[in-house]
Design a protein around this nucleic acid. Structure first.
Length: 501
RNA sequence: GCCCCCAUCGUCUAGAGGCCCAGGACGCCACCCUUUCAAGGUGGAGAUCAGGGGUUCGAAUCCCCUUGGGGGCACCA
């Protein structure tokens, strides 16, 4: 095999938001390129004009960018010029290239005009299905005489262009699966490469572009495995050198079918919006279908790039396991610097404010002070409001029923809360620190014969409204003396009132 | 229906003939730590390596068959 520079690409189609599967394919291409000092290219396959949109394109670009998968060559975006020697990288801007290639195939009779209408083809497919036959183009237009063509033209029919598949066996050496062979007769007959309206189709553009962009390795999902023979035939017909192929295992729904929007959360943006961080998603995706062969598992993009190899890619599909992603997300959140975490938490807090889940935004100092206690408790960034939101609301409503610890009754709770209020009021006058609060409150519990845990739980619920919170004294400090006392008073009032009623 | 691909704990995987009556991780359970919740630590349950035939002194690992699963078969990508 001749040595050529490593050039790989991710070629998404802007017909939907960035999909987890596309992100994984992009990642593997990226890692492969980085590992081998190759070039990672982004190409937009937007020839399905009806379904493509700018909004999807933006979502895809933003998502790849967010994941840190920067491309070496790619289209112009947001006013920034295209990068790379093979611009444009958007297929609808490359129509001339396809037109020229199509003209060549037509001139060499490797392709021919087909005048069948969609309705006729549909009928043909229906018939095949009814007869339990594989759907296959009949080849009706393969050998039209000039007169017959003229007749169709006179009718006003516009032809599509079909590629002659021919006979024989196409074989290739897949980098993850080994040798794959398929008989061309199993390809479904001659296939359309240019629509009647003149726009080119996927199988055609992908080959023309991969050749034009000198792609050395086509790394894509297994759903393309059976398309590969078509592509190889096209590479040959056009006289292009074929790239090497590697087909990645599919990412699966829990029921082991191809991951889909219907059964799983597939949009990368949704994961980001829920507070999964890029490090975790990249790490998780890399380990879906590939492993280092060691027991390492927490790996950064750089560490992954240093270890990646196609030989270790799994052949079987992999079920997307959200729980494991969440665990990895926690691992990565804990590895962030406090300042970085504060920064990343901001948008989520802003969203909580918009939604009315909190009444004000914490200052940077407030947030920063919470990090030691918050960092190890956050499964996702989106959980921040749930974790410490009570600190930033104007009032909490502690239900009398939950205010009373399991082992206590209302009277005891009331007594305890009043006593605790006095202790806190007396010790916190000058400064308000956790290690100033804890000893006297423990002493109080001891003196009254209460379990410290019960006393702490009553206080916890009184000031936060909930039974699960960060450590109590850190929480009181974060709340501040005045608000702590205020919430205690309010809880005492409510509990007392509940008894009267 | 036809073609192609795949097959180790529930899930992600290690394993490339003896180191494996199969290792790690997530999840689950228990215990420890502990004011709650987490995090962390320790331990446990969990896979007759889909089944059946070969090959071999020896197979999760090689071959064949069966079964099961998946993907593809568009003027979508």
């Amino acid at each position: 095999m001749s040595e050529s520079p490593i050039r790989v690409r991710i070629a998404p189609s802007p017909t939907g938001p960035l999909h987890i599967g596309t992100a994984r394919t992009a990642l593997f291409n990226y890692l492969f390129a980085k590992r081998l000092g190759g070039t990672f290219i982004l190409r937009l396959e937007d020839t399905d004009v009806a379904r493509s949109s700018i909004a999807f394109e933006k979502d895809i670009l933003d998502g790849l960018h967010w994941l840190g998968l920067v491309w070496d060559e790619g289209p112009e975006v947001a006013g920034e010029a295209a990068r790379g020697p093979h611009a444009p990288y958007r297929q609808m801007e490359r129509l001339d290239t396809y037109r020229a290639a199509a003209a060549r195939l037509l001139a060499e009779d490797k392709a021919y005009p087909c005048y069948c209408t969609p309705e006729e083809l549909e009928a043909e497919r229906k018939r095949a299905e009814a007869a339990k036959q594989p759907p296959r183009y009949s080849g009706r237009c393969a050998r039209l005489t000039p007169d017959e063509r003229a007749a169709f033209e006179a009718e006003g029919r516009r032809p599509a262009l079909r590629f002659r598949v021919g006979e024989g066996i196409v074989a290739f050496e897949d980098l993850v699966r080994g040798r794959v062979e398929i008989e061309t007769t199993a390809l479904g007959g001659d296939f359309v490469i240019v629509r009647a309206d003149g726009t080119p189709l996927y199988h055609f553009t992908v080959v023309v572009d991969d050749a034009a962009m000198e792609i050395s390795h086509v790394i894509r999902g297994e759903d393309h495995l059976s398309n590969t023979p078509k592509h190889i035939l096209l590479f040959r017909a056009l006289g292009f050198r074929e790239p090497r192929f590697a087909h990645l295992p599919l990412i699966l729904n829990p029921d082991r079918t191809k991951m889909s929007k219907r059964k799983s959360q597939t949009a990368v943006a949704d994961y980001r919006d829920q507070g999964f961080i890029r490090e975790a998603l990249v790490n998780y995706l890399a380990l879906l279908g590939w492993s280092t062969g060691t027991e390492e598992e927490i790996l950064s993009l750089e560490e992954l790039a240093a270890r990646f190899d196609l030989e270790s890619v799994q052949k079987g599909g992999a079920v997307f396991d959200r729980e494991r992603l969440e665990w990895l997300n926690g691992q990565w959140i804990r590895r962030l610097s406090a300042d970085d975490l504060v920064e990343r938490l901001r948008p989520f807090l802003a969203r909580d404010l918009d939604a009315g889940r909190i009444d004000r935004l914490p200052t940077d100092e407030e947030l920063r002070a919470l990090m030691p206690v918050v960092q190890e408790r956050l499964p996702t960034l989106g959980a921040i409001g749930d974790l410490v939101g009570f600190l930033f609301v104007d009032r909490v409503d502690a239900e009398p029923a939950v205010l009373v610890p399991k082992r206590w009754d209302r009277e005891t709770t009331l007594t305890a809360l009043r006593a605790a209020r006095d202790v806190i009021a007396s010790v916190g006058r000058v400064s308000f620190e956790a290690d100033e609060l804890e000893p006297p409150l423990r002493a109080l519990a001891e003196e009254r014969g209460w379990k410290a845990g019960d006393l702490f739980m009553a206080i916890r619920v009184a000031v936060t409204g909930r039974t699960a919170t960060p450590p109590l004294f850190d929480t009181l400090v974060a709340l501040g003396r005045e608000r702590t006392l205020g919430r205690l008073d309010r809880a005492i009032e409510r509990l007392a009132a509940a008894g009267v009623a």
